[in-house]
């Protein structure tokens, strides 16, 4: 049958759901082994963080879409968690191959890493669902269209109180680690990347300024380089 925007969106959702094991709301045995190999086991911290972020996400989703949609928010959060675990496992496999280490204690106990990774997984889930309301141009889908706009990036950053700069760090590794992402979703993540680079990362309070300051201080003792164009 011809590919309509709605059919394309439905296929993306089906692919996303089908691709994620229904038991994936818990870490796989492989991922559990990575946790156990850590100097400090991150399992409890990860579980607690997910519970806390889930309690934050659903009400905010309800605020943006409507109180009768909180259950959809929970559903999307659960899909996001499954994608988060799947991508985390794939990222660690690549890192193990690249660095020849199995102890990722520092990374796996870094709260910012987990929040950024989950935020990226949720952005993918929501962009997959919102594809239908964006492209549909309204036709009887008024509420969905409004919701799409409200839930649009950088909505997730505000929900998780996450800096754009930290979110930016996971995007490329996320795309590398999840080869089943559709071209539309990759393009969406690239749009988020550009938005961060051009605008959001430069807002007051961004950790980027602190990083630049530290780099400058560290560089002050070294020989000054000729400014690049």
């Amino acid at each position: 049958p011809p590919q309509t925007p709605i059919r394309a969106a439905m296929n993306s959702i089906k692919l996303l759901r089908g691709d994620l094991p229904s038991s994936g709301d818990q870490p796989s045995s492989k991922l559990t082994t990575y946790f156990k190999n850590c100097t400090v086991d991150p399992s409890q911290g990860i579980q607690k963080r997910l519970e806390m972020l889930g309690q934050v996400f659903s009400p905010k989703f309800g605020e943006a879409v409507g109180p009768h949609c909180i259950a959809y928010g929970r559903e999307r959060f659960n899909l996001g968690v499954r994608l988060y675990y799947k991508v985390m496992e794939s990222m660690l496999e690549s890192e193990e191959k690249r660095l020849s280490v199995q102890n990722f204690s520092k990374l796996l106990n870094d709260s910012t890493f987990h929040t950024s990774l989950l935020a990226c997984a949720l952005e993918v889930v929501m962009a997959t669902y919102e594809e239908s309301s964006f492209k549909n141009g309204g036709g009887g889908h008024g509420e969905g269209e409004q919701a799409g706009r409200d839930l649009c990036f950088p909505w997730i950053l505000n929900v998780f109180d996450l800096s754009a700069f930290d979110f930016y760090k996971v995007i490329e590794s996320f795309i590398k680690a999840e080869p089943t992402l559709s071209k539309e979703i990759i393009k969406h993540l690239e749009t988020c990347e550009n938005l961060i680079m051009e605008k959001i990362a430069w807002r007051t309070g961004s950790p980027l300024f602190e990083l630049l300051k530290r780099e400058q201080e560290a560089g002050a003792t070294e020989q000054a380089e000729t400014p690049a164009s």
């Binding site: 890192e95 760090k169 490329e172 590794s173 795309i175 071209k183 990759i186 393009k187």
Partner: peptide, 21 residues
């Protein structure tokens, strides 16, 4: 078609981006 431009080198990964060794 759309191709994402990967900026990270082969020797770089998520560990470096979050300051981990």
């Amino acid at each position: 078609s759309h191709d994402y431009h990967f900026g990270l080198e082969e020797h770089e990964g998520i560990s470096e981006l979050f300051d981990c060794d």
